[in-house]
Design a binder for these strands. Structure first.
Length: 368
DNA sequence: TCTGGGGTCCTAGGACCC
DNA sequence: TCTGGGGTCCTAGGACCC
């Protein structure tokens, strides 16, 4: 699917999240480029560093967006408008990238201002003019209004933020649920009390994969689950985290998606353990239809150094030592430097290099 | 038209505890 | 034999965001 579309392509109707085939039909001259997330991550780190040079109160929202609370910086750095100009100049100078800044009295309005200021812009929405800015806009601009909520609001005849603001709160809460209804009503009046929180630890880490062709072989599926689990384990250890809840996600050919999870008494981060749990959850599903996607995610995260509940009779963890060595090898030589034979498509070929050392090869059997 | 991969937050029911 | 009111934790699903 399309991850992002240039403004030229958007003129033809191409949008992010759209199937690439469809985008190509809309704009046959489009140049389609495969994404390079590692590169984006590199640049993202540089941009975030420039933000942090302005204020430590930086809350990244995604790879390319962050909230900056400059309330404490104005005395030193001047007013918000000046800081915003400074941020734009800094990022442009250091990375060559153009950023859009929205300046407002809270997160919601600042984000909205930055959206309306794109591309390459700077939009200030002073508190005194917030409602004048906000109320004529369509309800879709509200944070949390997607396809489903939009359909509900349409049934109530609410098309603009102003109309929503003037609807009875009780009606909204009945239509959308207590929490969502109340929140939307607040946002419609430009009210948003959420603080900017820097350094929030992640709440879950997951990896999933959509197959090129659907899979119904249970052994192959189990292998793919273990492969996802190993990716998650690698990222958990890199972040110094482990988690108590393992969730398996399975999407069938008809796009129906189910999840199964298990919470353990103690947190884990080992490839093999995560993989075994994922495979058990998969077995419990008793999959009989072709599967389009599997994924493994770990939540209930705790930082390294947190107390660990040892199980009775726990032996020194050899598996963990193997994971850590594998991590070091991949850190140094790249992610593809080392692969578990049991996760390779054609395990027989994995041992071609080891053929000259039959004894060593025998020693490796059934060991990680 | 045919739907990626990474996440967060919310809801609702049930088990369980005091 | 039928039963309160408060709470936490777990599970599954869904909406939403970039």
């Amino acid at each position: 699917v399309v991850t992002s579309a240039s403004y030229e392509a958007r003129a033809y109707g191409c949008r992010s999240a759209m199937p690439t085939q469809r985008a190509r039909r809309m704009c046959p001259e489009a140049i389609v480029v495969a994404p390079d997330f590692a590169a984006y991550q590199d640049v993202s780190r540089q941009v975030m560093a420039e933000f942090r040079a302005v204020t430590p109160m930086v809350e990244p929202l995604s790879l390319d967006e962050a909230f900056l609370d400059v309330g404490g910086a104005v005395r030193l750095a001047g007013d918000a408008l000046g800081i915003a100009r400074d941020v734009r100049a800094r990022v442009r100078e250091r990375t060559g990238l153009v950023v859009t800044v929205g300046v407002a009295g809270n997160k919601f309005l600042a984000k909205l201002a930055s959206t309306r200021g794109k591309p390459d812009g700077l939009l200030v929405v002073p508190p005194s003019r917030a409602l004048e800015f906000l109320h004529p806009l369509p309800v879709q601009v509200l944070w949390g209004v997607g396809e489903a909520t939009l359909a509900v609001l349409r049934r109530y005849g609410l098309a603009t933020v102003g109309e929503l603001a003037n609807a009875p709160r009780a009606t909204l809460e009945r239509a959308l649920g207590r929490s969502a209804g109340a929140r939307l009503h607040e946002l419609a009046w430009g009210r948003d009390e959420r603080p900017v929180v820097p350094d929030e630890p992640p709440k879950s880490i997951g990896a999933e994969e959509t197959f090129e062709t659907d899979i119904d072989d249970p052994d192959v599926l189990a292998r793919e689950v273990r492969r996802s689990a190993a990716r998650v384990g690698r990222r958990l250890r890199a972040a110094g985290l482990s988690g108590r809840t393992v969730t398996l996600k399975v999407r069938f050919a008809d796009f129906k998606t189910v999840t199964r999870s298990r919470t353990l008494p103690s947190a884990l981060d080992g490839d093999a353990e995560l993989g075994r749990l994922g495979a058990e959850l998969l077995a419990g599903l008793g999959v009989t239809h072709p599967v389009r996607l599997v994924g493994v995610s770990v939540s209930g995260l705790v930082a390294e150094g947190a107390p660990v509940q040892l199980e009775l009779g726990d032996a020194p963890d050899e598996r963990r030592a193997v994971d850590l060595v594998a991590d070091r090898i991949r850190d140094r030589w790249g992610e593809r430097a080392l692969e578990l034979a049991s996760l390779v498509d054609e395990p027989a070929t994995a041992f071609v290099e080891a053929r000259d050392e039959p004894r060593a090869r025998r020693g490796l059997r059934n060991r990680p």
